[in-house]
Write a protein that binds this DNA or RNA. Structure first.
Lengths: 195, 195
DNA sequence: CTATTAGGTCTGACCGGTCAGTCCTAATTA
DNA sequence: TAATTAGGACTGACCGGTCAGACCTAATAG
């Protein structure tokens, strides 16, 4: 984290604040206060609050794919089942480390923005579909290896898993306990076992 | 619905607008415009926007439990499996009728408000837990009747189903297609089949 | 070597508009 | 006659966004 320019600082702060409070309730002034950047300089780097938020979303997506997906679901050095377990563990630990606050940075935004801003919706849609297809490959390989049951379409399982994950993170945030995610991983694995 | 007083009109409009746009982006003036009620009269009936929104949430919860839960998951005249199917059908049809917009009125609010307003969070938390326990009873009875597999705790299955449902509604809203919910019901039923 | 130009970054003052909420008076209705 | 509704003016805080100009550095021209 060496010598960050104002532009980078703004992107970082926006990413964090939007995850915390959502897009609409994060004000430009909030971002300015957190960074010490002046408003006029903000609008030198970005033409609008929306533009910054979209850039912040893109960078968050990239980071998630590089730091989470690549080291879990896409780690070819371990079995599909292990990959899936590691994936759940990592997500679950993350939300526990946040004291069950904030929720999913992507799911939150999907709910807040999908009906009112096509830019956010389409990015999130592509992102989720990509995530789903990575899950699908993991499941498909697991079925081939006999780790998972083979009587359900891997694509459908992937969809079920991603939807459940997003809903579970919502419940973690609502109930303020990690259980809906952490304590259910075992049941999910059981449902996927070969019959 | 004849001859509604201003108070009832305000609650109805608030319920609808908050489902459409969320709490923060729904302004008091929006609600006033929609109802034709004057601002002074608004504050005659409610001490704040928050108070109205909380009352609107309560009435929406009540309505949901009476009109959806009671006629599906709690309908003792049909089998647990049929109840569950009817439940999914009803929810799925509802979101299709909304052109895959809006999302779940409860899930939306849970994500928007859980971290910033304890009143909303606690109401939603109780509501979701109640919903889960109704699902659990349905599953438990289905297991007893041999309709569902018996090797997983009904409480865990209920949690999985509710989380998946909320996530699926999120995806319906994001992808703008009913598929994540409508086309996956069959797979869910298959996963629950006795082994 | 000096003067000029250019591009990128940053600033303080300011804009019109919106927010939730208040206040007051007068009319209407049950 | 008490509860409700109508009507409008008003507040202070805050919203996203604009603007003219200052500052720094490096390349270029005389």
């Amino acid at each position: 984290m060496r010598q960050m320019g104002n532009k980078a600082k703004l992107i970082e702060a926006a990413t964090d604040l939007i995850h915390q409070k959502g897009y609409h309730t994060t004000t430009v002034d909030n971002i300015l206060d957190k960074t010490g950047v002046k408003k006029s300089n903000f609008y030198y780097h970005f033409k609008s609050k929306e533009e910054l938020a979209l850039i912040a979303l893109d960078s968050r997506i990239e980071q998630f794919e590089e730091e989470i997906i690549n080291y879990t679901l896409l780690d070819g050095s371990i079995s599909p089942k292990s990959r899936l377990k590691r994936f759940y563990k990592k997500i679950s630990d993350y939300h526990e480390s946040l004291n069950c606050e904030r929720g999913c940075p992507f799911g939150n935004l999907a709910i807040e923005m999908s009906d009112v801003n096509e830019g956010f919706r389409s990015r999130l849609s592509v992102f989720f579909q990509n995530w789903e297809s990575v899950l699908e490959s993991c499941i498909a390989e697991g079925i081939k290896r006999g780790e998972f049951r083979s009587d359900i379409d891997p694509q459908h399982i992937a969809s079920l898993l991603l939807c459940h994950l997003e809903g579970a993170i919502m419940m973690v945030k609502t109930y303020k306990t990690p259980e809906p995610l952490s304590s259910r991983i075992h049941s999910i694995m059981k449902l996927l076992e070969p019959i």
